[in-house]
Simulated scan of single mutants.
Amino acid sequence: MKLETKKELDEYKKEWTAKIKEIRTGTTDEFVTMKTSMKSIGKDSIKGLMAGMEDMEPSLQKKAQSIADSISKTIAKALQIKSPSRVMKKLGKWVPVGLADGMEDNIGAVIQATQRMANATIPSLTGANSGGSISHVDNARSYQSSITIVNQVPNISPSELARKSIQAQRQLAMEWGV
C-alpha cells in the first residue's frame, strides 16, 4: 500500500508540475501579447482623453470665465473699487507728502535740477547783467526785462523759492512769445 501511495503521489506531483508550467507559460504568453499591444492601448487612451476634452471645451471655457469673473469681483471688493478705488484714494493722498519729504531730504539735487529746468525754459537768453536785466535778441525784435523775486514769506523752503522762480520765468517766456 505504501508503494501504491507513493506512485499515486508521484503522479499527482507530475500533474501539478505540468499544470504549474502550463499556467506559467500561458501567463507569460499573455504578458508578451499585452506588452506588444500596450503602445496602441496608450495611444488610444490619449486619443480618447483628447476627444473627451475637446467635447468639453465649451463647458471648460465657461467655467474658466466664471472663475476669472469671481477673482475679478473678489479683488474689486477687497480694494473697494467703485471708480475710483477707495483704497487707492486713501493710499494716494500720501504720495505728495512722500514726494515732498524726499525732495526736502535731497534739496541740493532738487535745486540743481530746478536750475537746469529753469535754464531749459528760456532757450536763448543773452546779455544778463548783475542788475537782473535780461536781453533777448532775435533778428526781428528785441526785448528787455528785469526779474525781481520779492520773498515776503518768512522761512520759505528752497524748493518753494525755486518753484516760484520757474513760475516767474515761464510767465516772462509767455510774455515774450518764446
Rank of each mutant, 00 (worst) to 15 (best):
T5A: 06
R116I: 02
I20G: 03
T5N: 09
Q169R: 14
E4S: 04
K89E: 05
P84Q: 03
D105R: 07
L91A: 05
A76F: 02
A128F: 12
M50V: 15
K63M: 09
D138H: 07
I81F: 07
H136K: 10
S157C: 07
I107H: 00
K19F: 15
R86A: 08
I67D: 12
G132E: 03
L49K: 11
G131C: 06
K77F: 05
V153C: 04
R163M: 15
R163W: 08
Q115E: 15
S85F: 02
Q169S: 13
S157L: 11
V87M: 06
V153S: 04
G92E: 06
S45L: 11
S135C: 06
Q167F: 11
A168H: 02
V97L: 01
N106W: 03
E15V: 10
A173P: 00
G131T: 08
L9S: 07
V178C: 03
A168P: 01
M38F: 13
A68W: 01
M88Q: 09
I71E: 08
D44I: 10
Q115K: 15
R86D: 06
Q61S: 14
M117R: 13
A109R: 10
K77D: 07
Q115L: 14
S70I: 00
E175P: 01
S142T: 12
A140V: 10
P96N: 01
L3N: 12
T148E: 15
V153Q: 10
I111V: 15
V150E: 15
A64G: 09
G108E: 13
A78V: 06
V137K: 13
M38H: 10
E11F: 01
K21I: 04
Q65Y: 08
N155H: 09
K35L: 14
K19Y: 14
E57W: 13
T28F: 01
K43Y: 14
G52P: 04
Q171H: 13
W176E: 03
Q169D: 06
K6D: 08
G132Y: 04
K93I: 00
D55Y: 00
E4A: 09
A78I: 05
A68S: 13
R170I: 12
S159G: 05
A168D: 01
G98E: 03
V97K: 02
S145G: 11
